[in-house]
């Protein structure tokens, strides 16, 4: 009968190692795999929406084109650049963590938060333009929130195409809304990680939380990389 000798550092230091792991390597592997598996789950979560999108875009190509033309590709383009820039700052944050430079982690993470908030701010104005008319506010007609008040008159489509453009806007709000929700959840987490980094919790040996939150943020970026052409660029020609 044999067993492994005492687990190195298990009980000795209160460091980052949790009691049920043998060593930091195992803990890192678990955390990293956990996030990848979570991302796999997210792929299918958004996947249901993308599948719905595919079916309806195939069925109603004109309505989708009309709905898309009313979205501003310039705003979408700007936001795409903002989001990939935030991915760069996040990658640099993880890079600094791997080098063990705590202060730089904080700076890069704060930059990421700034860019993420910028994206959400632009999104807010984009939404407002479509939502405000539903409550009689803003510039004239054109409520584009699906539902009873949906008003396709601003889209210049045949009357009978209105329900189909409504499907487009249902998908637009569901997809971008869910994407924005992921960012809204992500930002406080990054802030929390930045706080921990500022207090010197991470080192070149142990900075997995930074890596993990980075994976999450990059994934949210990838979703947007697909949303941008699929929603904003149908038939801009």
């Amino acid at each position: 009968m044999s067993e492994v000798s005492s687990r190195p550092g298990a009980a000795a230091s209160p460091g980052p190692l949790q009691h049920h792991f043998a060593d930091l390597k195992q803990q890192k592997a678990a955390a990293s795999l956990g996030m990848w598996v979570f991302i796999a789950q997210e792929v299918l979560f958004f996947g249901g929406l993308f599948a719905t999108y595919t079916v309806y875009r195939m069925t109603y190509p004109e309505a989708f084109s009309a709905g898309s033309q009313h979205l501003s590709w310039k705003i979408g383009f700007f936001n795409t650049l903002v989001l990939i820039a935030s991915s760069l700052t996040m990658a640099m944050g993880v890079h600094s963590a791997a080098l063990g430079r705590a202060k730089r982690i904080v700076a890069w993470l704060l930059a990421t938060i700034f860019l993420g908030s910028l994206f959400l701010g632009v999104k807010y104005f984009e939404y407002e333009e479509k939502i405000a008319p539903c409550f009689g506010l803003g510039a004239g007609p054109g409520c584009l929130v699906p539902g009873e008040r949906f008003d396709a008159s601003v889209l210049h489509v045949a009357v009978d195409m209105a329900p189909q453009t409504q499907i487009f806007y249902s998908l637009y709000f569901a997809m971008t809304g869910l994407h924005a929700l992921h960012m809204i959840i992500g930002i406080p987490i990054i802030l929390w990680i930045a706080h921990a980094a500022w207090r010197g919790r991470y080192s070149a040996e142990w900075h997995t939380p930074v890596e993990i939150v980075g994976l999450y943020w990059h994934f949210v970026d990838i979703i947007w990389i697909f949303l941008f052409p699929l929603l904003y660029l149908i038939g801009t020609h």
Partner: peptide
């Protein structure tokens, strides 16, 4: 997306 996955991630 591939670039992001391969390098950033």
């Amino acid at each position: 997306a591939t670039l992001v996955v391969l390098y950033f991630m």
